[in-house]
């Protein structure tokens, strides 16, 4: 699956990267990323996740063909 991160998350991860197929839902993705970079754990707790341009909950099932976008808290305006 492909992961895209935005804004401050780019200071913790590549803007876009691939992950293995063993991750099955958003909650496990969040845990996996926190393990990859422990310093991102706090910001990851505040993030929203989107698949196919729709926000999804933590129990949303993800598959190998999905692109998951991870959004830190908005700061527009």
């Amino acid at each position: 699956m492909k992961i895209q991160v935005f804004a401050v998350l780019k200071e913790y991860f590549d803007k876009e990267f691939e992950l293995g197929d063993d991750i099955t839902d958003i909650a496990s993705l969040q845990s996996h990323l926190s393990c990859l970079n422990a310093s991102a754990q706090g910001i990851l707790q505040l993030c929203r996740f989107a698949v196919h341009d729709e926000f999804v909950d933590h129990d949303f099932t993800i598959t190998k063909n999905d692109t998951i976008c991870i959004f830190p808290p908005s700061s527009g305006g």
Binding site: A7, R48, P72, S74, S75, G76
Partner: peptide, 19 residues
Amino acid sequence: APIWKCEYFSDGTKKWGSN
């Protein structure tokens, strides 16, 4: 809205903003 600002300061530092 999924929009973010990054502030670039006069002292050469930068910081992703929050609201």
